[in-house]
Structures are given as structure tokens and as C-alpha cells.
Design a binder for these strands. Sequence first.
DNA 1: GCCAACGTTGGC
DNA 2: GCCAACGTTGGC
Length: 160
Amino acid sequence: MGKAGKRWWLFKSEPEEFSFGDLLKAPRKRTFWNGVRNYQARNLLRDEVQVGDLVLYYHSNAQPSGVAGIAEVVGAASADPTQFESGDYHEPRATKDAPVWFGVEVAAVKALPRLVALEELKASAALAQMGVVRKGNRLSVQPLTQAEFDEVVRMAARKV
DNA sequence: GCCAACGTTGGC
DNA sequence: GCCAACGTTGGC
């Protein structure tokens, strides 16, 4: 932990659950990124994602799926409160002293001028290594290179 | 709704 | 520790 320098990430969210538009409408355009229940994604949130990092906000299970906006990490990892509540996100093994699941606070930076669909991401040679275009990659928190992040932003600025 | 890909669980 | 069964993700 305690890395130097900004990093770049892609966070997936189903827009029916919480879209980028919902984030823009949220108080102070912020939300706590909760509900991650995958250990690899949790480890990234807990150990790697830092305040100041930039996030591509990806809509999954959407028509079409793709990158909708840019967000920024504004709060360091803390226990996901939903693990202590009853319901789908409850985690019986979690205690306040030893939480199992973590989240970070994110804030909307801006919507992209247009959604960059998964189909376009797949068609870009520059993005061939990006996790989301690779078959079977279901991680909801994925690291990006700065070049990948910048390329998606550039694509969004171009007409289709 | 289908199903491929992957993660998790649990019997042994 | 192996691995089959099961559950989930997410594109299509």
C-alpha cells in the first residue's frame, strides 16, 4: 500500500442498478462503491485504489454496454457497510473489527461526450490488452494503463 | 433467455 | 489438495 502516483481503473456497474447518470444526480455527485463480492476486486479496492485515481465508469449488462463517464476516487477504502446488514450483501463472517468486503468513495468527474461501446473498445488495436475486451473477464474492478484510459477518452471525443 | 467463462464450495 | 457441482457474470 501507499503507492506513489496516480493510477487508472475501470469500474463496472449495471446501469439499471446505478448508472453514471445516477452518479451525476447523487448528492455532491458521489457514492460509496459497495457490493463488490469478489476477492480479486476487493484486494484491488483495498490495497491498490487510491484517492485521486481516475476511473472509467463502465455500464455492463446494458444496451449497449460501454464506458459512460469518468469518475475519481475521493475516499480511501473502508468497510462496505452492506456486509453488516441483512439482505443480499450480508456477510456472516464479517465483524466490525475484521470486515471482509471493502469499497471506496467515488465522485463523477464528467460524462463522456458519448458512450464508447464495448464493440468499439474491441475494435481498437490500442486497447487489445484492456481487461474488459478480453473474453471471460468478469472482474468488476480492473486496472488500466494511462494510455488505455486516454485512448477511451479520445475515442469518446470523436464522432462515430 | 441462453450459455461460456470463471469463481466458490464442499465431499472425499 | 483435487475436482465436480453449483452459482454468478455479462455478452449476445
